[in-house]
Design a binder for these strands. Structure first.
Lengths: 189, 189
DNA sequence: GCTAACTGCAACAGTGGTGTCGCAGATGTT
DNA sequence: AACATCTGCGACACCACTGTTGCAGTTAGC
């Protein structure tokens, strides 16, 4: 019934964590899954889910907000405004891939179009474009490149890379993503 | 109640078409929309929808099958096995984009993972890889390129290009997709 | 150890979508 | 013109999910 009140007792905190992790797993497999399935996966009664989260929406919001906070932190950690562009790009990519592998549902939801997150989405996209612009100044991206398009392509490549089941190493995946982003599939000169 | 029986009367045929087109529109905007919303958009009573399509699934199946047939036809028309690879690739891309702009829901559904269409999906992916392999022999794609990955990237680029609202010309979009696929965002040598 | 908080369980009401039916009237086919 | 088909409408049963409540029993914190 309540999403956030005063500090929770230890067992309630444990329930919240279990529910969030179960929700991530269950909703990743089936975004339309019922809260009962989430409760079952969390090893918790359905009523407990409703006690901790007023709505399905409140649950998803928490999931998304959590992962978006992590995303911000992870981007900050790569120093996208000061580090060499390609280094920052690689680090961001690897970190984001790690995040996406661990929180596929929340990450997908975070980037869903027409959602309640458009402001933060836009903010993140702006940071992405800024980083790409820096890579442009160093000559790694063509001066006439359409950075909005490049950013979308970048997102899409990350999404595809995260689906890759054969190669689970985020660093290698990041290399593949960036190589593809910069040079495509054509022969390198 | 019945999906396909004997030949339909002219007005029934009209209803079927109206329902399919309305379903495409409504479900593109909201994949979880109710059949009532579809009926309303089609200018038809809800019961009529159920008379023409036993299930929601039957309705979606028809939509997907129709668009997949068109997809096959459109690929055939580009002569992917005989035409110069890049020409075929461009033509396929433009045609697929046209299809995706007109049937966004059905196309998205057609390529959804873990769906009932995996065989046809796989067949299409195989044709895609075959075409890419031909582009490899002509030197447009690197000899050591991962064609499965390239195919996925190609799909993703088409998906992103179809979201592009500023440039509605499929031919220009196709050029952008292929340029990006082959050369990425980096400076061309 | 006392108290407040938390949990599972069972029960309940409410909601929205689905699928079916019959009927009266309209529409097409011949 | 006659007939079969199709339609809208209203009604119905059904189902799954949601959200709430009360209660008895457990657990955490002071």
């Amino acid at each position: 019934m309540v999403t956030q009140g005063r500090p929770l007792r230890a067992d309630a905190e444990r329930s919240v964590r279990a529910i969030l992790e179960a929700a991530e797993k269950v909703l990743a497999a089936n975004p339309a899954a019922s809260l009962e399935q989430v409760a079952e996966a969390a090893g918790v009664a359905r009523t407990t889910v409703h006690r901790r989260f007023a709505n399905r929406q409140a649950l998803v919001d928490t999931l998304v907000t959590t992962v978006m906070d992590q995303l911000d932190a992870v981007i900050d950690a790569a120093n996208p405004d000061t580090a060499p562009p390609l280094v920052a790009l690689h680090q961001v990519t690897a970190s984001v891939l790690r995040l996406k592998l661990g929180w596929p549902f929340a990450m997908t939801e975070s980037f869903a179009p027409d959602s309640r997150w458009s402001e933060r989405q836009h903010h993140t996209a702006t940071r992405c474009v800024t980083l790409l612009a820096r890579a442009q100044t160093t000559g790694h991206i063509a001066p006439d490149a359409d950075l909005d398009w490049t950013c979308k392509v970048y997102y899409a490549l990350i999404g595809e890379a995260a689906h890759n089941t054969t190669e689970p190493d985020p660093d290698l995946l990041a290399t593949k993503v960036i190589t593809t982003l910069l040079h495509g599939a054509g022969p390198r000169s």
